[in-house]
């Protein structure tokens, strides 16, 4: 007969056996549920009852942890914040530069298309200034006679006609805009091929000497007609107003210029020689 040591008295042995049996059963139930990919009763209880408490604790814990982090790392966060702000400013500046480059790129593409479309040689020039007073609507470009620019050379950009050169220096030239009242450009309506003369009104342009029998419509495109200075087919603008009087010999059309004269920075000069 084997004597059970006093350390393992009967009660402890019974408890031990009961615990082993219950723990094994619980373990097998849990393992079985895990193998089947389902949840045991204890898992379901935990998910139903304890789950919301866990969720609330997690949210609270995260909030406290965040606050603690902010409190303990205030200086570092401030430095990071300043660095990020500087980076954001640099990125914004880079973004602006990229946008400007994009605009410039589109403008250059349009000018390339114009260069391919118009006859003869062209010279690219930058606009370096406008006439300081409102006596004339002129602009100054950074190319002159040394680059081959001559008097009466036609100036345009990707949108349409700008004007023509009215005086030339060695390294600069002045361009009279088509919106200047002294400018006169032979032109015709692209739709009807009715001829007229385009002169400036400071802000817009007017097409004069359009016959009374010509049917004008808003939005008609006006292009240059072949003349002494201008080649044919360069867009000037579109009809925005029509002035027709029964007792007059001709009609007048107010044009919205194709070019925005307030935002010119690069132009093409059609070299005549």
């Amino acid at each position: 007969m084997v004597a059970i040591p006093s350390f393992w008295d009967e009660r402890k042995l019974l408890v031990f056996l009961a615990l082993i049996i219950v723990a094994s059963v619980v373990m097998l139930i849990e393992i079985d549920a895990a193998r089947r990919g389902s949840q045991s009763l204890a898992d379901q209880f935990a998910g139903t009852v304890v789950g919301p408490i866990q969720g609330a604790l997690m949210v609270t814990g995260r909030a406290i942890a965040n606050e603690a982090y902010v409190t303990t790392h205030a200086r570092v966060i401030a430095e990071q914040d300043a660095a990020l702000a500087a980076k954001a400013r640099a990125l914004a500046a880079a973004d602006e530069r990229l946008k400007a480059h994009g605009v410039e790129n589109r403008e250059l593409l349009r000018m390339l298309a114009v260069r391919a479309a118009v006859p003869g040689r062209t010279i690219e020039a930058d606009v370096v200034g406008y006439a300081p007073e409102a006596a004339r609507r002129e602009l100054e470009i950074d190319r002159g006679s040394s680059q081959g620019i001559a008097l009466n050379d036609v100036v345009l950009n990707g949108d349409g006609l700008i004007g023509h050169v009215v005086d030339v220096g060695p390294s600069s030239a002045h361009v009279l805009l088509i919106v200047d009242p002294t400018s006169a450009v032979p032109a015709y309506l692209q739709h009807t091929h009715a001829w007229g003369i385009v002169t400036g009104t400071w802000l817009h342009a007017r097409m004069k000497y359009i016959g009374q029998d010509v049917h004008l419509t808003f939005g008609d495109v006006v292009v240059t007609g072949l003349g002494e200075i201008y080649p044919a087919g360069i867009p000037i603008g579109t009809v925005s107003q029509i002035d027709r009087k029964d007792n007059a010999l001709y009609q007048v059309a107010v044009l919205q210029p194709a070019v925005n004269f307030e935002a010119l920075d690069r132009v093409l000069v059609l070299v005549s020689r």
Binding site: E30, I31, A33, A42, D43, V50, Q54
Partner: peptide, 8 residues
């Protein structure tokens, strides 16, 4: 195990 031990 109920909170994620799978019986181990």
């Amino acid at each position: 195990d109920a909170l994620g031990g799978n019986g181990v």
